[in-house]
Structures are given as C-alpha cells and as structure tokens.
C-alpha cells in the first residue's frame, strides 16, 4: 500500500471534521474492503480516519418498534446479539453468513452499507425491512440510500452512524454464494413489516433493489407459491463468468421462494 496519514478520532464530530478538511481522506471501519484495495494499490487516500475509537458508533438498542444498530457493530455482534436474535432473527442469520469468521469479527454493518457492494448482504435487508440509515447529519430511508454500484446518497464527509430496522412480523433470507468469492451471487431478503411487505435483492444487479412484483404477490398471499411464478427480468442484471444475467434472474425467484420458506 501507499503511505497515508492515520487518524483515530474519539468522536463522530472529530471524524467528520477530519473528513471535511481533506477530500482525499477515507474513513475506515472494519476495513474488509478498503484494506485489500490498499494492499493492491488500487486506492491512494491521503489519510485514513479509523472509526474504531468512537464509542457513539457502537451498540444495539431498541427504540420503540425498531432495532437501532450502531454503524461500527460487527457482523459477529449482529449475528449473536440477543435483542436482534429476538426481534429480527433473519437479520442475525444473514449476518452469520457474511464472509468468514475473520471477516465477521472485523467487518461492520455501517461499513457494508456505506460501501454498497452489489454482492454485499446487508443492502437487501435494509431495503426489505424499510430501514433508515442514520448519519451524522440526517436520516435517509433505505429506498433513497442505495444509488448504484458502490454508490450511495452519502456525501463525501458524511458518516453512517447507525441503522434503524423496523421490527417485522416475519422475515427470511436465502442466497447462493459465488463459488469463488463466497459473496452473494444472488440473495433475497423478504420481510412482512409495519410498513408492508419488502423484498430486497442483492448480488443480481449492479445495486441491491426491491422486487416490486414479488412484494405485491406476497402482500396478497404470503406464501412460497406466491413468488414461485414471479419471473425476474434478466435485463440490466450482472453477468460474469460465474453467473449469466439469465441465471441470476432465475436465482431471484429461487432465493425468494427459499427466503419466504425461511421466514415461515
């Protein structure tokens, strides 16, 4: 990696100040995407703002009918937290399938959402559960947060501080892993929540998206059969050596069925 300055602020305000002062600075949470990119010299930030020293970014709490998870909460913590296990067990199960043990102990929910890798798991859950992304300056509904491949509504110096998930009546998740990277080839998160039915899809397209036809079908009839006949169009889906667009389109339906079965 190239040389960079290293900062470890103790407050969100200090972190934002550092980021605002230098457009080439990058925040780092778990570093599970950024550090490999640095090692491969694909990224040349002037400085890294390490968020691991900011206590405000940690913790899981219940706020009314929602679970609020701090941005620096690791996948392992999400997978094992008693409140999440009780309120949104599908989210905990999803977190338990991210990467491997090392990644789950380093990677964070805030980092994953801010990175918005098309094959990351969380964006589908955030969409399906109608989550709200909380930043240092505003609250952004998930529907307005994920804009495109590795692109979000975040401003350059804006930090994800937490995410609020309305507690659903039921939710489920299923994915097929890419045989090489083990990222999601296609994953579908389904939820029946206070704001309606949500179906979020990751891995299939350049950005996680909601599958509206499936949401309508499940709203009318929450069952595996309801989504079994909804076909996803392969147009605009990802195609690579591991999965064609047609294959991924098929997986959207298959994983939706399995996610509904998982939700019960």
């Amino acid at each position: 990696m190239y040389d960079f300055q290293y900062h470890k602020p103790a407050t969100i305000a200090d972190a934002v100040k550092l980021l605002a002062a230098d457009p080439e600075a990058r925040p780092v949470s778990g570093g599970m995407t950024l550090l490999p990119a640095l090692k491969h010299r694909l990224n040349k930030p002037t400085s890294l703002i390490d968020l691991s020293g900011i206590a405000e970014l940690r913790g899981v709490r219940r706020e009314g009918d929602a679970i609020v998870i701090g941005g620096m909460t690791t996948h392992y913590e999400v997978a094992t937290h008693p409140q999440i296990l009780a309120a949104i067990p599908a989210l905990a199960r999803m977190a338990a399938t991210i990467g491997d043990t090392q990644v789950r102990n380093r990677g964070t929910i805030g980092g994953s959402l801010a990175n918005n890798d098309p094959a990351a798991d969380y964006p589908a859950a955030a969409l399906a559960l109608r989550a709200t992304i909380i930043t240092d300056r505003r609250r952004i509904p998930a529907d307005e947060f994920f804009l495109g491949m590795f692109t979000t509504a975040l401003e350059a110096d804006e930090l994800v501080t937490g995410i609020s998930f309305p507690i659903p009546e039921k939710a489920g998740y299923a994915k097929l892993r890419n045989p090489a990277s083990r990222y999601s080839m296609t994953g579908v998160f389904v939820a029946k929540g206070p704001h309606g039915v949500g179906v979020g899809v990751n891995g299939a397209g350049p950005c996680a998206f909601r599958q509206a036809e499936m949401e309508a079908a499940l709203s009318a009839n929450w069952s595996v059969d309801a989504v079994a006949n909804v076909k996803q169009s392969p147009d605009d889906l990802n195609s690579d050596i591991h999965g064609s667009a047609a294959y991924r389109a098929n997986l959207v339906t298959v994983m939706a069925k399995r996610a509904v079965a998982d939700a019960g």
Binding site: L176, P179, M185, H242, G243, S244, Y247, N250
Partner: peptide
C-alpha cells in the same frame, strides 16, 4: 460442473 453450467 459449476452451478451456472448445470443450471444451463
């Protein structure tokens, strides 16, 4: 025999 190939 990848998933893609078998499915295809």
């Amino acid at each position: 025999a990848t998933p893609l190939k078998i499915w295809s």
